[in-house]
Design a binder for these strands. Structure first.
Lengths: 216, 216
DNA sequence: CATTTAATGTTGACACTGTCAATTTAATAT
DNA sequence: ATATTAAATTGACAGTGTCAACATTAAATG
C-alpha cells in the first residue's frame, strides 16, 4: 500500500477517531464533519473513503468481527486435555472481547446499523463467529461428553448466554460488582478494577449450564 | 382528566407517534419537528411536554417497564401445581414482551438512552422487573426443587438468557426459523407466522438449564 | 361574571448535521 | 513531461435540536 496521497492514512484515522468519539461521548456525537475537523481536513473529505456514515460504522463492525473471529479461531486450535474446557474458553474469550471492545460489539450485534444496511461481508463474518462457537461443542459430542442434543441448539444457548451477559454488562444494566456479590468463593469480583472477573463468572455459569439447576 | 386544552392529548399522541415512526423507519427518523408535523402542531410544540428528545424516549422506556412489571407480577400471582412452571412462565412472558414490543424493549435495555440520562424512576422500575424474576426462583428453592445456589445468580442466569435471546431475535441476529430448525419435535417453528414458537423454544432452553448439557 | 394566571402552542433564530455537485490539488501511470 | 485518477475542497441545500420571545386559551380566582 505504501504511503498515501495527501493526508497519509485518512481511512484508518477516521475509524480510530470515530471509535474514540463513540467511547468518549457516544455514537450520536460522531459526525462526518467533526471527524474532518479533528483530522484537520475538510468536512467532506471523509466521503472519499466512506460513501456515507453507515459505511463507516459497517467498517468498524467488520473490523470487530475479524478480530473476534481470529480470537475464537486461535482458541479452537489450542490443544486441551479436557475438550469441555475449550467451550468455556471460547465463551470467556467472547465475553472478554465484548467488554474490551464495547463500541465494536454494539455495532456488530446492536441496532445502530440498520439491518438493511448490513453488507453481505458482515453477514458472512457473523456466521464465521457462530461456527467458532459450534465447533468445540461438536467435538465434545463426538467424545460423548455432552448429551446428543442438536449441537446447533447448544451453540445457540451458549451464544445467547454470552451475548446476554455481554450486552447487559456493556450497557450498564447488570452491575457485575453487585450481580455476583456475596457468592461462594468461586466467584469473586475484582473490587480493585471494579469489573467482574469474567473467567470466574463464566466458570460459574458454565457449571450451571453443565449440570443444570435442578435438585436431584 | 377530561378534555385537554388545545390539541387534546398531545403528550399521549407524541409517544404513540414516536413509537410508530421508530417501528416503521427506525429511531433516527424520530425528530421533534417531524412529530409536530404529523400531529399538525408547530415544530416546537413537543417541547411543552418533553424537555428534550431524550425525555420523550425515557417516557417510552418507562411505559415499557410498567407494562413488563405488570405482566410478570400477574404471572407470579397465579397459583401453579408445579412451581418450576412459574419460572418458565416468567421467562416466556419476558421474551414474548420483548418480541411484541421491540421498540420499548430496546429503549429499556439498550444504549439509545445514555446511561447518564436515565431517570431514577427508570432505575427503580428495572429493579422491580428483576425482583419479579427472582421471586419464583426463591420459591422453588424453598421447596427444595432447585439447588441451593445463591438465587441472585440463578436469576441473573435466567435474565441473561431471556435478555440474550430477546435481543438476538429483535435485532435480527438470530433467525428463529433457522436457529431452531431440524430439531426434535419438541421445538417447532411456526412456519406460517415465520416466528418461533417462543413457548416451545423456552421449554427447550428451560430443559437444558434444568438438567444441564453434560452426559452423565 | 370579569380578570388574573398558568398551561399550551407559535414564530424566529442559531448553530449544527448529512450529503450532493462542481472544482481544485497532487500522486501515480504513461 | 504529460495524462490520468485518487484525494481533498468549497458552496449549497434541506433537515435537525433547542432556545427566547410572543400569542392564545383553559382554568383558577376574585
Amino acid at each position: 500500500m505504501k504511503k498515501k496521497y495527501h493526508h497519509g492514512d485518512l481511512r484508518r484515522k477516521l475509524i480510530e477517531t470515530a471509535l474514540q468519539i463513540i467511547s468518549e461521548q457516544g455514537l450520536e456525537k460522531v459526525t462526518m464533519r467533526e471527524l474532518g475537523k479533528r483530522l484537520e481536513v475538510s468536512r467532506t473529505a471523509p466521503y472519499r473513503h466512506f460513501s456515507d456514515k453507515s459505511a463507516l460504522l459497517c467498517a468498524i463492525a467488520e473490523e470487530g468481527y475479524k478480530k473476534l473471529s481470529t480470537i475464537i479461531g486461535q482458541i479452537n486450535e489450542q490443544n486441551t486435555d479436557d475438550p469441555l474446557i475449550r467451550i468455556q474458553n471460547v465463551g470467556v474469550a467472547y465475553v472478554k472481547f465484548a467488554l474490551s471492545n464495547p463500541v465494536h460489539y454494539r455495532l456488530m450485534f446492536g441496532n445502530e446499523i440498520l439491518e438493511s444496511k448490513r453488507t453481505p461481508e458482515l453477514v458472512r463474518l457473523a456466521e464465521e463467529v457462530f461456527n467458532g462457537v459450534l465447533f468445540p461443542i461438536k467435538l465434545c459430542q463426538d467424545k460423548k461428553l455432552i448429551r446428543p442434543i442438536n449441537p446447533y441448539i447448544i451453540a445457540n444457548v451458549l451464544w445467547t448466554m454470552s451475548h446476554g451477559i455481554s450486552t447487559l454488562l456493556i450497557d450498564g444494566q447488570m452491575q457485575a460488582t453487585t450481580a455476583f456479590k456475596g457468592l461462594p468463593a468461586l466467584i469473586q469480583v475484582n473490587e480493585i478494577s471494579g469489573s467482574a472477573d469474567i473467567d470466574r463468572v463464566f466458570e460459574y455459569l458454565g457449571e450451571i449450564i453443565a449440570n443444570g439447576i435442578l435438585e436431584r
